[in-house]
Amino acid sequence: MAELLGFPPQVLFGQLLIGLINGSFYALLSLGLAIIFGLLNIINFAHGAQYMLGAFVAWFGLKFFGVNYWVALILAPLVVAAIGIAIEKTLLRRLYKEDHLYGLLLTFGLALIIEGSFVHFFGVSGQPYSVPAALQGGNNLGFMFLPTYRAWIIVASLVVCFGTWYMIERTKLGAYLRAGTENPKLLQAFGINVPLLITLTYGYGVALAAFAGVLAAPIYSVSPVMGSNILIVVFAVVVIGGMGSIMGAVVTGLLMGLIEGLTKVFYPEASTTVIFLVMIVVLLVRPAGLFGKEA
């Protein structure tokens, strides 16, 4: 049989597909970060905690109120977005005029508080959340066994990512958003409620994180530290893609998933570091990121 790079094609295709699935999570999370950074100029370090909250809301819902997965997929992002909006209205709002660093410190502090209190009450070992009945099982693709749920992750995250991109780049609301990023004062002069726009944007970014959290709940343990594990990688993805670039975040997320997947075949020991290596190279060659505009 023909071999690609010394590996049978089945193995390689399988790994690429797996990479795409992990990339879907990176894409969803970095998209949220990019939107928030683009409009609010806030580096949202609480993103990992909000992803974790999404998974926990789904778990709470199932355990105590019998809320099923499909409802949780809508409900959890709304609940977590409401929390995010409360944070924006009471805390973040005061920091827009200050240096980036203040927003970073505030959200980082919030993340530590949220994660710390969840560790206190739930421990770190993780709560079980089972795959919904409709998505159990899987198909043998010939080169690998693909669990239905993993296929669903790709579909769901691509739909949400490109839906978001379309909304921002092709609709009137998106045009307001982009205008708000460029010149908020001028936009306000046209009678647009910019503070509300900002609040909703933060809520939406947070909702994306929570959505990814619910998607992750059945395959990763629902644990208070699940967010901090993934957040650092996602930040690297955003830096590679170019801060604030919507399409850059999505494409880079998927791409990094693929690169990580390949590394797991060729040199698994480096699989957690490879993204940072890419980041270093990109920063050296294109400091604004792959899709960022040179300042």
Binding site: V11, I18, G126, S221, N229, I230
Partner: peptide, 30 residues
């Protein structure tokens, strides 16, 4: 695999491709 790996699907796939009767987990905890 590195300690505290988030996603094992890639490694499980390699284990499946190996054709071994036993997949031994020489890791611990999470």
């Amino acid at each position: 695999h590195p300690l505290a790996t988030n996603d094992f699907s890639s490694f499980i796939l390699q284990a499946q491709a190996s054709g071994a009767k036993i997949v031994g987990l020489a890791n611990a905890g999470a």
